[in-house]
């Protein structure tokens, strides 16, 4: 049905194809986890700015991560990984990484949202409009990264807005602004991608074998993320899917199967009745 998908994958102008005729450059995040100090300022700054409710005291035992994951009340989540390579001389490493909505070029949550509550902004970001969302919940399992969730007692779905309100006033997102070490870098996506590649090259040259960009490739399963990362280990170690593909890439195929099935249903019933006509 939506034939445009293949084309859309190729375009890196999601705002343009979403009806923003004269729009600013696509803005996004490059989260460079190699300089993250795990301070969680991003978590707090986000909560303060967006007045996100506190979500309970829970000592998880997962290193210093007592937040556990993204959800309705956590739009930035700092993961902590204690990696001991006891068998080698490589020693011990403590990885920290601040996760956030990826603001996918092809965003499943946006595609599936039936109300238009989720929309692509002029900055190319993906935002849930809290005045529209009716809590149908469809976006939740659509997201391949586990970003969105329903807020208890509210019923609506929340996630990072990439500080749409601040961007509208030419301001930097709260989390990026707070970040003490610039692990979270905000800016026009092309610039960020270029900068990230430079940093990766630098790390590879210095012999960091695990270093990799995550979500920076427009050719990936979501058409590249608007918020991408430099990781020091495989994505799944950080709780990220290694090779997610936006579900709506297969929508045509699904509708075709459904069409066939629907036809078969009609045919089957007709067959059952017609063949038995007395």
């Amino acid at each position: 049905m939506p034939a445009g998908h293949g084309v859309e994958a190729a375009t890196q102008d999601p705002a343009g194809i979403s009806g923003w005729l004269d729009h600013p450059p696509r803005m996004g995040f490059f989260t460079d986890t190699s300089v993250c100090i795990g301070c969680k300022a991003c978590e707090v700054a986000c909560k303060e700015w967006n007045q996100v409710p506190e979500d309970g005291l829970n000592l998880t035992g997962m290193s210093f991560d007592n937040t556990a994951g993204l959800g309705a009340d956590t739009w930035r989540h700092v993961a902590f990984i204690e990696r001991a390579e006891t068998d080698s001389d490589a020693g011990f490493r403590w990885l920290m990484s601040s996760d956030v909505c990826k603001h996918c070029t092809e965003a499943a949550c946006l595609d599936v949202c039936p109300t238009g509550a989720i929309f692509r902004t002029e900055f190319g970001t993906v935002v849930v409009q809290e005045d529209v969302c009716n809590g149908c919940g469809y976006c939740v399992p659509a997201c391949p990264y586990g970003v969105l969730d329903k807020r208890e007692g509210d019923g609506r779905i929340f996630k990072c807005t990439l500080c749409y309100d601040r961007l509208s006033d030419g301001q930097e997102p709260a989390c990026a602004k707070a970040c003490p070490t610039d692990s979270i870098q905000f800016g026009p996506l092309d610039e960020l991608r270029e900068r990230a590649q430079g940093k990766l090259d630098q790390l590879v040259e210095a012999g960091h074998p695990g270093a990799q960009l995550y979500g920076a490739d427009p050719g990936d399963g979501v058409g590249g993320a608007g918020a991408f990362f430099l990781l020091l280990d495989e994505p799944e170690v950080y709780g990220l899917p290694p090779d997610p593909v936006v579900t709506t890439r297969h929508l045509g195929e699904m509708w075709r199967s459904a069409g066939l099935a629907a036809a078969a249903l009609g045919a089957g019933i007709i067959g059952a009745f017609v063949g038995s006509r007395r």
Partner: peptide, 27 residues
Amino acid sequence: ALVKDLGRPTRALNMLRVLKPTSPMSV
């Protein structure tokens, strides 16, 4: 059942705000 499962049932009609070919739920 569908409406009941909505987080905000009073906003059920928002389902008809848009017609999204990309959303099986909308379609």
